[in-house]
Design a binder for these strands. Sequence first.
DNA 1: ACTCGCGGCGACAACGTTGTCAAGCAGTCG
DNA 2: CGACTGCTTGACAACGTTGTCGCCGCGAGT
Lengths: 384, 384
Amino acid sequence: MNRRPGIKDVAASAGVSIKTVSRVVNAEEAVHPETRARVLHAIQQLGYVPNTAARSLKSGTGGAIGVVIDSLADPFFAALVSAIETRALNEGLSVLVASSSLDPDREREQLLSLVAGHQVAGVIFAPVASEHPYLAPYRTTTPVVAVDRSRAGYDSVVVDDRGAAALAVQQLVDLGHERIAFFDRDERFSTIHRRLSGYLDVLQGAGIEFDPELVSSTVDGDLDYLGEARRLLGLANPATAFFASNAKAAIGLTTALHRIHRQDTAMIAFGDFSFADVLRPGVSCIDQDPFLIGNAAIERLLALREESSGEPREWIVPTALLQRGSGEITGPLAGGSATAPAPASAASTSAAVPAASTPAAVPAASAASTHPAPSARLAEGDVA
Amino acid sequence: MNRRPGIKDVAASAGVSIKTVSRVVNAEEAVHPETRARVLHAIQQLGYVPNTAARSLKSGTGGAIGVVIDSLADPFFAALVSAIETRALNEGLSVLVASSSLDPDREREQLLSLVAGHQVAGVIFAPVASEHPYLAPYRTTTPVVAVDRSRAGYDSVVVDDRGAAALAVQQLVDLGHERIAFFDRDERFSTIHRRLSGYLDVLQGAGIEFDPELVSSTVDGDLDYLGEARRLLGLANPATAFFASNAKAAIGLTTALHRIHRQDTAMIAFGDFSFADVLRPGVSCIDQDPFLIGNAAIERLLALREESSGEPREWIVPTALLQRGSGEITGPLAGGSATAPAPASAASTSAAVPAASTPAAVPAASAASTHPAPSARLAEGDVA
DNA sequence: ACTCGCGGCGACAACGTTGTCAAGCAGTCG
DNA sequence: CGACTGCTTGACAACGTTGTCGCCGCGAGT
């Protein structure tokens, strides 16, 4: 009925000054144990909870971190945010989520709202625009980490797209395929562009001539999966295998292939998806574990709060190739990311960052145990 | 380099008092158009963004709403939060997410942090504990809406579990099945208990005797799907059809059935999941659209901010039964929730709330267009 | 001419917390 | 015995914003 208890009420109840209460709440040293006990008792009794708004008004930086991702409806990003939230809770931080919908204007609006409006203690974002000059005034006080897509000037947590894609395509080549379709090239995403590079790397290495007809392209937004699948299989020299450049494409393609009863083709997907191991034939996947990535990102952000280190750099999170050969069903994790941190990826792309991926992987591993395994993602507690 | 611009800087730059700037920012009436223009210009030039912390300190209630759900790694809840976030953005509100991990203590911690600490403008939560007495002091100022699981004393947005389950089981009965397994009874969830009621309703209505052996039970946490599937199919009088009480069970069961090559059984699942229409045979699903539910919840919350209406009540969101008969593959939405809002559900359970589900469905429908269709959930932009 | 009303605007306090500074108080050392 | 030290505590300002109140000037009514 009365208004919510404030620090003053606690102080009065404990017979001390508000400053002493503040000291107790913030676990400062110089408080007599007996006084501390009295204060804690009063806090308990009144159900006092410190006011975050006043705190961040005073300190200039608040008790939440901001996360801006494409969409929470995307399970990859949802899982990523989940990992972030779990870790943030340990630090006593809350998570403000905002989605960009891949719209640079909305991205700007959301970022400014978080950084300037809510004065978040840090930001993790999946960048959309190529530059974010409006963040400049805040970067001295607010650490920022890019995730999933790297940006110059920001610490970026990404996977080795090019290397992992190469690993996958190599696998198809090793199986004897020479007509490998690159399914769904979407120019909007730099990640996909890098995966295409990996694809081309392997073709060149194997002496296979690149055929542009084997590339499906999303122009802006939608692709007719069924039509594209028919086209690729109907070429004079048809595709015999598919490299699906992202999970969305993989799902669309799988559905299309099932619909036209062409399950005689090989396929590897970038991005794991549930049921990849139930389908016939099983679809091998490059698993980019969102929990690993999310953990690495927040770990990086927390480190940045301590000491805003020198040059921003790219932090590469290992991927795993989940083998699901014809008919044979392998366990979802088959050893897990710990045993299969894509060593071959080092063979292809840019900076391998040993000092980076190792410490990042340690806390990530602990989080993995509290979360569903990647391929069991959809399976978690969806009793809703 | 300088500190971030405050209202004072804007006032100085525009040659007015800070109060006038405040008036302009808050779109109050009594400001001369010319003055307003000057102020807006200054705001623009300085890149001023109002400080949320100060605002909520003054007003006692902040610019964010809190959402507490089981886990963001669960796609159902992730999509639900996504719907909430989209709508909240329209109102100029941010979203603070927190997960309960189904732990009542953690739920309490998270709720208090949001309500008392962050002074959110409202809370939407999937309740875990059966009671939340600690929320009482805040309920006069902070509206609260329960979602997915209903709680007395709170406006609750749920689906008609009992009715929808009955609809599904009836379908199996109509196909001639008499040995229908209830797969995964989990006592922790009241939703599942209600679904079991629907199951029993139909059996009784059809004159089929209930056989406890046909019920699989999760004791606490894990269930051996493969073992249970074998048991049910190995009974003296074996199961010929399955009602999967939730998406997790459906996925586990599907995987198990595929693994032992028993795709000759019928199955209907509560909760849609991607690939339900690709599997052979197709799995019919009761689709509880998280976007619909999320929209209804935030709509309810916003309404509660206006006028804290009288009695809290239950708001029932319609479900759709997605038919995916044997072999025949139906389009994922096949008309969508608009055309199949489970009319039969009215035949079974508690309060049908016409005034409720109708206005809730209107804004929900608009959001559905900006989001992927339910069954395409996994398919959205997962290019990460 | 004097007053009244009103549109436009500003001075000031207050929100709940923490940082700064200094005071009180005992024990210790010279 | 006085000064000094270290520990504990409190008074007060400040963070950026909005609510309250009142001032100013102008046109209309008396």
